[in-house]
Design a protein around this nucleic acid. Structure first.
Lengths: 279, 279
DNA sequence: CGTTAATTTGAGACCATTCAATTTCGGTGG
DNA sequence: CCACCGAAATTGAATGGTCTCAAATTAACG
C-alpha cells in the first residue's frame, strides 16, 4: 500500500477557492427557490400555500468557482442546498485519493437531500463550472415539510428519482465497456438537460473535462480519451471545447444501453403523486 | 447486434414458480410487520401510536421459492412488500438478457419503497433463497404515513439509507478490480447481516451462487470463480456450499475499500431523526 | 443412482491500464 | 501581438486484467 497525496489537493483545485457571499433574506420579491417549481410542477402538483411558504423561506446565496467544494464530507449538515445555476457533482475521495463521481446535479435540484437525516454529510458536492447555490436552514425546511404534505411529497419524490437514477448508473457500470459507459453518461446528461429545457438547438454546453468523465465512469483519463475519439469517429457525437452535439441519438442510446423512456416516465406521466394527504 | 433468449428464461428459473398463499388479516395477535421495528428502533424512535397503527394494518403473506420473482418490472405497484424471512435482490434484465443485480435485501426491509410514487415497478425483485414476504396495501400505508410522522420518518429514513448504500456500490464498481468488487460485496453482506444480528458465530449463511455474485459485480461467472479462489488462497475467506466465513475482516475491507464505519454510522449513532413534526 | 445445476480448469483474444512523452489550447504578462 | 505557461488533450508501446469459448469436474437433489 503506497501513500500519496490526494489527486485533487494540488494543481487545479487551488484556484477554485470557496467564495461565499451571503445575501440574506430576499427583498426584491423574487426568491431563487422558485426555480424548484420548474422541476416539480411537471411531476407533482404543489399547493399554493406550500409554494408561498417555500418562497418565503429565508435563504442565503453563494457562488463557487470551478472544482470548488460546495459541501465537504463529514461537515455538519445544517442546511439544504439548491443548485440555482451551473452544474455540480456528488463525489467521494477514495483512500488512494482518486475521485469517484457518483451523480450529476442540474439547476433546480436539491443537491444534498440524502443528508437530511444525517448529522454529517456523507459525500462531497463539487462544482463542475462556476455555479450559484441557495442555502436554506435544515430545521426550517424540515418544519415546512412537516406542515405541508405537498411540499414534502415533492421533495421525497425528488430523492426517489435520484435513487432510481443511481440504480440505472449501477447497471451501466455493470454491463457496459468503456464506450458504453461514456455513451450512457452523455445520454443521461443530455436527457436530463432536455427534461429541464436547457438544450440549445443542436447540442448543449458540456462542462466535464475528460478526466472528470473518467472519474464518473471508473475509467482512466487516457482510455477515456481514446474512447471519445472512437465515438467521434463513428459519427455518434461531436465534442470539443465544452460543447457537445449528439449526431446520432438512437445509436448513442444503443451503445450505452440508455433507456430514454425510463427517465422520461419518471419525470412526467407515470409519476402521479399518490395522495399522501389532503391539504 | 445479436438476439438471444434472456439468460434466465430457461433452466433454473422454471422450477421457481411463484407460489402465493394469502393469509388475510392476522388473528393470532402477532403481525409479521413487527419485524420492521427491529430495524427501525435503533435508527429512529417510532411512537407507540404509529406502531400500533402499523401492526394493525391488514396484510397478506406469501412465500417464494429460489429465483422466483416477487415483483416484476412494469407491474402495477398496488402494495408495499416487507421481506419477512430469507434474502432478496433488486435486479433488472438488460436488453441482451443479462441480469444486473442492483441491491441486496434482508429480512425486515421494505423491498419496494422506491416504487411508492411510481404506478409501475421499475425493476424486478427476486428471491435469493426460499423467502416469506408480507404485503400491505399501498394506499393504506400511504394514508398511515400521512397521519403518523414518526412512521413516515422511519420509512423515509430507510429509503435514504438505501440510496446511500447504492452510492457506495457505485464507488466499488468504479474503483475496484474483480477482487475488490467481490470483497466489497461480501463485506456489505456480512456488515448488514451483523447489523441485523443475524450472524452465527464465526460466519454466516451466504445464499448467492457464483453466477449471482457475477451479476452483482458486473463480472463473468468464470472470472468470479477464479477471483474467489484467489481470495480463498490468500486466506481472507472460506466459502463453500452457501456458507461464508471471513477469516480476515480487516484485510477483506481493505481489498474492497469497504468503510465499515460508514455503514455503521447510518444505522445507529449519527442517524438522529430530525424532528419532522411532533406527534 | 442418475440427472441437472454449479463449480472448476485451460488457452487465446481482447480490453483497459500504466507510464511516458508530445501536442494543443486558453489565458497571462511582457 | 507575441512569448510563455499550465492544464487539458493526445499518442505510443508494453503490461496486466478480464472475457470468451469450450470442456471437465464436482456438488446437489430426487
Amino acid at each position: 500500500m503506497e501513500l500519496e497525496l490526494p489527486k485533487y489537493q494540488n494543481s487545479s483545485r487551488q484556484r477554485a477557492e470557496r467564495t461565499r457571499s451571503c445575501a440574506g433574506i430576499p427583498v426584491d420579491g423574487r426568491s431563487v427557490l422558485e426555480d424548484l417549481f420548474k422541476r416539480w410542477r411537471c411531476a407533482a402538483p404543489i399547493s399554493t400555500i406550500a409554494k408561498s411558504a417555500l418562497i418565503g423561506l429565508p435563504w442565503t446565496q453563494a457562488t463557487f468557482g470551478r472544482e470548488a467544494y460546495v459541501v465537504r464530507e463529514g461537515e455538519p449538515t445544517s442546511s439544504f442546498t439548491v443548485l440555482v445555476s451551473g452544474f455540480a457533482i456528488r463525489q467521494k475521495l477514495a483512500s488512494d485519493g482518486r475521485r469517484q463521481i457518483v451523480s450529476l446535479h442540474f439547476p433546480g435540484e436539491f443537491v444534498d437531500v440524502q443528508n437530511c437525516f444525517l448529522d454529517h454529510a456523507d459525500c462531497n458536492i463539487q462544482a463542475l463550472n462556476s455555479i450559484t447555490v441557495a442555502s436554506v436552514s435544515k430545521s426550517m425546511l424540515l418544519k415546512l415539510m412537516a406542515a405541508h404534505p405537498s411540499a414534502r411529497r415533492s421533495i421525497w419524490l425528488d430523492s426517489m428519482v435520484q435513487t432510481l437514477t443511481l440504480g440505472e448508473w449501477i447497471g451501466s457500470l455493470q454491463r457496459n465497456d468503456a464506450a458504453g459507459r461514456i455513451a450512457y453518461l452523455l445520454c443521461e446528461f443530455v436527457a436530463r438537460l432536455r427534461a429541464a429545457g436547457m438544450t440549445d438547438g443542436t447540442g448543449c454546453h458540456f462542462p466535464m473535462s475528460q478526466d472528470q468523465i473518467a472519474d464518473a465512469t471508473g475509467l482512466t483519463g487516457v482510455h477515456t480519451n481514446r474512447t471519445l475519439q472512437a465515438l467521434r469517429k463513428s459519427g455518434l457525437i461531436r465534442l470539443s471545447s465544452n460543447r457537445l452535439e449528439v449526431l446520432d441519438w438512437d445509436a448513442l442510446c444503443e451503445v450505452g444501453g440508455f433507456d430514454e423512456a425510463c427517465l422520461h416516465r419518471r419525470n412526467t406521466a407515470e409519476l402521479k403523486p399518490a395522495p399522501l394527504s389532503h391539504e
